[in-house]
């Protein structure tokens, strides 16, 4: 089947077998030229979050989304956010806090955290520890115990709040 999708800001046409998952098309490529290899295969049942991507801006487990579901929609992977300032600051914080061990779950975690912080920024709130953990709860990590990834996200959230507080006309942000 033919799928027209806006992938990482570009109009893309996929050829995919019926029933293929979004993960299979993004990661394995099949007949399609681009492999989005930041999208990792971890469980294929929607439980580990290693394959998290944004579908119309919302995080989804691409292993349990039919590729056809993306027809006429927008899909964003970590590759598509390589130049995004918020994503860059999240990546740097994750590295600086030693939140990357094996790194296999990192892309999925970063997509979930990116979505959280973007939503919080739009709403003018700063996520607390629990909100960060909820956002990460679909991203299983077997290496870190989540301590350092959560600290990294909290640091970026604090920096965002500081920037917003300093921005003229924005007022103070509730925490």
């Amino acid at each position: 089947m033919k799928i027209d999708v806006r992938l990482n800001g570009r109009d893309t046409a996929w050829e995919a077998p019926a029933g293929a998952t979004l993960l299979a098309v993004l990661r394995d490529g099949g007949p399609n030229p681009a492999r989005m290899i930041s999208v990792k295969r971890g469980c294929e049942t929607g439980d580990c979050g290693a394959c998290t991507v944004l579908l119309d801006g919302q995080p989804v487990n691409s292993c349990v989304v039919a590729a056809g579901r993306a027809h006429g929609h927008e899909v964003t992977t970590l590759e598509g956010l390589a130049a995004d300032p918020l994503m860059i600051s999240l990546q740097k914080a994750l590295v600086d806090h030693a939140g990357v061990q094996c790194g296999y779950c990192s892309p999925g975690m970063l997509i979930s955290l990116y979505h959280l912080l973007r939503e919080c920024r739009a709403a003018g709130v700063r996520p607390d520890d629990h909100a960060i953990r909820e956002a990460l709860s679909g991203n299983l990590c077997r290496c870190t115990g989540y301590v350092k990834p959560v600290a990294a996200a909290a640091a970026v959230a604090a920096a965002l709040e500081a920037v917003q507080a300093a921005a003229p006309g924005k007022g103070t942000v509730a925490s």
Binding site: S38, K40, L78, Q91, V95, A98, G103, P107, L110
Partner: peptide, 16 residues
């Protein structure tokens, strides 16, 4: 120090 492979992992580069 910065973990030697951390950035390429955080960028999802083809390393596995």
């Amino acid at each position: 120090v910065t973990k030697i492979d951390a950035f390429k992992l955080a960028r999802g580069e083809p390393v596995f």
